[in-house]
């Protein structure tokens, strides 16, 4: 066979094969407007959030936290709001599922933080789940808020008086922004209230279902 004796021809064919696969799996998505355009309620990061994003990048948070709620029931449930949380915050018992991540939500992300490993939980919908104080305490001493956590304490994000540095404050601002493109918590609670209102109003006949 000629390819075995001709180094140049071999390299040309190798390059053509590589181009084929790369074109369809990489270039075509790059040209797909649906993957690049921001979703209608996505907004660019504020200066503070952007600074926090840099801290997230610098400290390698991405190695232990993904930022993608996969399109699977167990993930929309786990990263949504459980009954305890809805009751404490909204006075209603309901499981509010988190919306799966959409391409348009990530349009302003450079670099991306989709991640590959969950040593800790996914953070795509974490914004608004806890208050700022919780996050500061968690960064200072992860096991004080989350017993059993494997996260290191980020002592260098705190000064000698154990007060958060501007970096820590920016990081929390960024985390609180995550997944808030949709007002899914509020909308979900509202919908749950409606459904529970309807089911309460329905006449209930025993033995007939």
């Amino acid at each position: 066979m000629k390819l075995e004796t001709n180094a140049i021809l071999l390299l040309v064919v190798v390059a053509v094969f590589m181009f084929l696969g790369s074109y369809f799996t990489m270039v075509v998505p790059l040209m797909d407007a649906r993957l690049n355009a921001p979703s209608k309620d996505a907004r660019p990061y504020t200066e503070l959030e952007m600074k926090g994003r840099h801290v997230y990048q610098k400290e390698g948070c991405v190695y232990c936290h993904t930022q993608q709620v996969r399109n699977l029931l167990e993930e929309t449930q786990r990263y949504g709001m459980g009954e305890e949380e809805t009751f404490k915050r909204f006075g209603i018992r309901a499981l509010i599922q988190a919306p799966p991540s959409q391409p348009g939500e990530f349009a302003y992300d450079q670099p991306h933080f989709l991640g590959t490993r969950r040593v800790g939980p996914d953070l795509a919908r974490v914004g608004g789940k806890y208050d700022n104080t919780w996050h500061i305490n968690h960064l200072r001493d992860p096991r004080s808020t989350s017993p059993g956590s494997l996260m290191p304490a980020y002592s260098w994000l705190f000064d000698k008086a154990s007060q958060p540095t501007p970096d820590a404050i920016a990081l929390v601002a960024y985390i609180q922004k995550l997944g808030t493109n949709y007002k899914w918590r509020e909308e979900g609670v509202e919908q749950a209230r409606k459904l529970q209102g309807i089911s309460a109003a329905l006449p209930f006949k025993e033995g007939k279902q």
Binding site: G21, T25, R70, P100, S101
Partner: peptide, 17 residues
């Protein structure tokens, strides 16, 4: 040479792609 390059997206299954 032909098959490998098409595989990258299997790292983001069920993800936003």
């Amino acid at each position: 040479a032909f098959l490998y390059i098409w595989n990258g997206a299997h790292h983001i299954l069920f993800g936003p792609i």
